[in-house]
Design a protein around this nucleic acid. Structure first.
Lengths: 352, 352
DNA sequence: AGCCGATGGTGAAACGATTAACTTATGGTG
DNA sequence: CACCATAAGTTAATCGTTTCACCATCGGCT
């Protein structure tokens, strides 16, 4: 491996000078710097080794994104990959790499605490959709690792990027109720760690540890109140996971226990799954049942799914911008995004 | 920051002992190890600092994936995110993080060579869909950085994971010709660096620097020959980019210069885009025109797109497995995957 | 002439961890 | 009882950079 020492020797200068050259310090003249670069290129020196550099300077040139559970699950969710896209865009132009972490391990019982994040593999992190109180998040806060939270503004003192979930949910339910629906089924993505699919009461949702679920439900209730709809007419099912399978299951459960004329989902993934299930059962959308999602993932446009648009990529950009600002000593704290209703072909007035 | 030294002092042992404890070496007894862990936990020590550890040991605990151009583009392509999913799955269980890199910068003219990959931010990389001869790939090979290539087995000496593109393409075209189509349009994703959308001749495609394009075209020609179809009846258009917009444009160009009864695309993204364009023009699929894609991305199933299935997630798993094996001193070299035809609702015999 | 402030450079001490080589008990064996 | 292998530690060198504190040189000013 060729090191700075080799370059220094070949260029006939001290290691310090080479280091200053690579950091573009004014301590070395422009001509000297160019000379050093060319010597370095001849030797095949790729630039300061990250480990050495990071050890001394404390900066490593990468930021991480922490996603719930494992990246495995997350990478199938477009709202996660698009967020990453936004982060990558900003990181890219600052020559900062993006690293993925699972939020799972905070230190298993028998093994030593071992989190690559806490051990300094990245300079800072974007925390997405991880429940507050999660050991990893707590540890990150405790150790003062720069972090930005996306979608969960509660985290004590951390800067955040979010949408107004309650209002988004309101728009969603309001649209359905305005169309005249009175029996509405709701598919909530996740209340807490539980990943099983089940019916839930209003109280269950109100007591959820996932902020999203609580906020959006609040929005649904706001809308129901404004339209004088008794809350008993809402059937709620929890999917447990954000994937097709969970959406299928949730839909089946819902159809078994209730006869809604409209289906409101907190995620496009579930809305799409529901649509498929309905189609398989020979039910027409929106003829027999209206379906509306949340996120406006690319697939929503393809299928013609009515949904609530949220600027996911922009959220990623905003999070990265705040994080980089913080890493540079800045003090930006938050960014709020707007949502809007997108009406497509999956919603219509109830039959009859 | 709390270091190993602090833990050692608090536990009344040497730094070496703490290090051995964390690496689970037999040089420290189990009871001692537990004691050290608990002291570490009390102090809030998160485990060996990556920079220090990596500097000394040469291992950093992360692998990278290099995607064409910027992660920005790639993160919108499901065939890329699903590959990442596969890699992440394997990395995850080995406690190895996944880092994203753009293939763009190999060292701009005026600035010093500066690639986080070459500077050791990761232990090894999966190179996906990057044209051979790319400066970054060359540099990686030159420096002996462990790497696995996905989808481009040409790279001298590098282990690889791939499908039989030629056969996959054959299956695709064979299906269309068996249905009786004789005027077929082809949308090829990318021939080389050019990102503009244009018509192409057989020679253009044959001379492409992208291996995928050449292989798949060869498969199309094989099928045409077997069905006694004159190659002049094939119209080829190059999309230039793998995104919706490029697919739209390619379709429009194709419809302008030819009157195919079937459309064969080298990517589901383009096939879906084409379908949308046809729908907008009031053409029925498969009534007025058949459409078939390649990849079997999740959206293909949703829309009912006929396509060639390839196991993308498994490709990621295989690549990661080979890479980790190499990092551990192993010598695995390759893994070949199978493709298969999936007939759904977008293909049918030509009208009349 | 003498002094001063730039400019362009050097030397050497960290940074935090790993690991080869050495040391010291401890227990087992002939 | 002497001898030795093993277990459980310790010491110290080392990894590649960064950066603080110094130092020389030189032109310009009084």
């Amino acid at each position: 491996m060729v090191t700075m020492k080799d370059v220094a020797k070949a260029a006939g200068v001290s290691v310090a000078t080479v280091s200053y050259a690579f950091s573009k310090s004014s301590k070395v003249s422009a001509t000297q710097r160019e000379r050093i670069y060319s010597v370095a290129a001849d030797l095949g020196y790729a630039g300061p080794n990250i480990a050495g550099s990071s050890l001394r300077s404390g900066r490593i040139g990468a930021v991480g994104v922490i996603v719930p559970d494992s990246p495995v699950q997350a990478l199938e969710d477009p709202s996660v990959t698009l967020l990453m896209k936004g982060i990558a865009e900003i990181g890219n132009s600052a020559d900062i790499a993006l690293t993925l972490f699972p939020a799972s391990r905070g230190g298993a019982a028998d093994s030593p605490p071992n989190s690559l994040v806490l051990r300094g593999l990245v300079d800072g992190v974007v925390i997405h959709n991880v429940p507050d109180g999660h050991p990893l998040v707590e540890a990150i806060i405790a150790r003062g690792i720069p972090a930005v939270v996306v979608d969960s503004p509660r985290s004590a003192g951390l800067p955040f990027v979010a949408i107004d979930d309650r209002n988004g949910a309101y728009l969603q339910m309001d649209h359905i109720l305005k169309l005249g629906h009175r029996r509405v089924g709701i598919i909530v993505d996740k209340l807490d760690q539980r990943t099983d699919c089940r019916m839930a009461t209003l109280d269950d949702v109100g007591a959820a540890t996932e902020r999203n679920a609580r906020e959006r439900l609040a929005g649904y209730l706001d809308a129901a109140r404004d339209h004088h709809l008794p809350v008993e007419d809402l059937s709620i099912v929890v999917a447990g996971n954000i994937d097709r399978a969970a959406g299928d299951e949730a839909t089946r459960i819902l159809l078994e226990f209730a006869q809604p004329t409209a289906l409101v989902a907190t995620s496009d993934v579930h809305a799409v799954a529901a649509w498929q299930v309905l189609r398989e059962r020979g039910l027409a959308v929106p003829g027999d049942m209206s379906v509306i999602g949340f996120d406006d993932a690319p697939v929503a446009e393809l299928l013609g799914l009515s949904t609530i648009h949220q600027p996911i990529v922009e959220k990623g950009r905003a999070a990265a911008t705040i994080l980089l600002d913080r890493l540079g000593g800045g003090t930006r704290t938050r960014s709020l995004m707007k949502t809007s209703l997108v009406v497509r072909a999956s919603t219509a007035p109830p039959r009859g």
